[in-house]
């Protein structure tokens, strides 16, 4: 590594509430170009709320989110998406009432920067995930969990993301499927895609991740590399083990 990559997204001191309950307590986070930044934490730690705040889906009450030289904390969700921050959520993965192909086409956006990177088209997606071509006319809701997860990631890629946010892509999936999703993320990383990955599965995340943050009770408890994390059993057992 050695080289320090430029910052794609910077979250500063973010506070978010759901109604009266305080969910995020001053969260700060940095995502760098071409890296896989992992956000680890248990269920209910605040991972999904954090990415929903970044994407403009849950309004933050204070703090900043810097992206492409702008604070996007008040930007409407569809503008954030069309400027290249594209999430693939674990709770709502695909449009079940649309066909596989329609799912891919709805998220289609032109690439924005001249960064040397692959340009995602439907053909390219079909090359990478042949199963989607085979099932292109099927209703997405009829796919298996693993296939839906693949479609979910593919749909996000169709937006040619500057920053791809993957929210627990392994949740509820069989080990074989998890391994194949890991391979796909490796490919994306090799193609210089910046990724923010939330996970409970530390083993999976550590194979892919560059930087790592741990969130618990809405606060960032650890920020650093996976190497340091592995040498620090107490953090892992305190915040991550079930």
């Amino acid at each position: 590594m050695g080289k320090i990559h430029k910052i794609v997204l910077e979250v500063k001191d973010l506070h978010t509430y759901y109604g009266l309950s305080h969910i995020l307590f001053g969260v700060s986070l940095i995502v760098r170009q071409g890296e896989v930044t992992c956000l680890l934490g248990r269920n209910g730690a605040g991972k999904t709320t954090l990415i929903k705040s970044i994407c403009g889906l849950v309004p933050a009450s204070s703090g900043e989110v810097w992206y492409q030289g702008k604070n996007i904390i008040k930007t409407p969700a569809h503008r954030i998406a069309s400027s290249g921050v594209i999430p693939a959520f674990s709770d709502n993965r695909i449009f079940g009432n649309l066909t596989v192909k329609e799912n891919l086409e709805i998220g289609k956006m032109r690439p924005r920067s001249d960064e040397k990177r692959v340009i995602w088209t439907i053909e390219k997606i079909y090359d990478l995930f042949p199963i989607l071509k085979e099932f292109e006319k099927r209703w997405a809701g009829s796919l298996s969990g693993g296939q839906q997860q693949i479609l979910c990631v593919a749909k996000a890629l169709m937006g040619n993301p500057e920053l791809l946010i993957l929210d627990e892509p392994t949740i509820g999936l069989a080990p074989v499927v998890i391994a194949s999703i890991g391979e796909q993320i490796e490919i994306l990383k090799a193609e210089n895609t910046s990724i923010l990955l939330t996970e409970q599965n530390v083993k999976f995340a550590s194979r892919l991740g560059d930087a790592c943050s741990i969130i618990d009770m809405g606060e960032i408890k650890y920020q650093g590399t996976f190497k340091d994390l592995h040498n620090n059993e107490s953090i892992v057992s305190e915040y991550l083990s079930v």
Partner: peptide
Amino acid sequence: GSIIRACTYSREMTMTAGVNV
């Protein structure tokens, strides 16, 4: 049409596809 059907399925997901819902 597919955008309209997408909105009936999930507003949030439609927004994150860059659609002004």
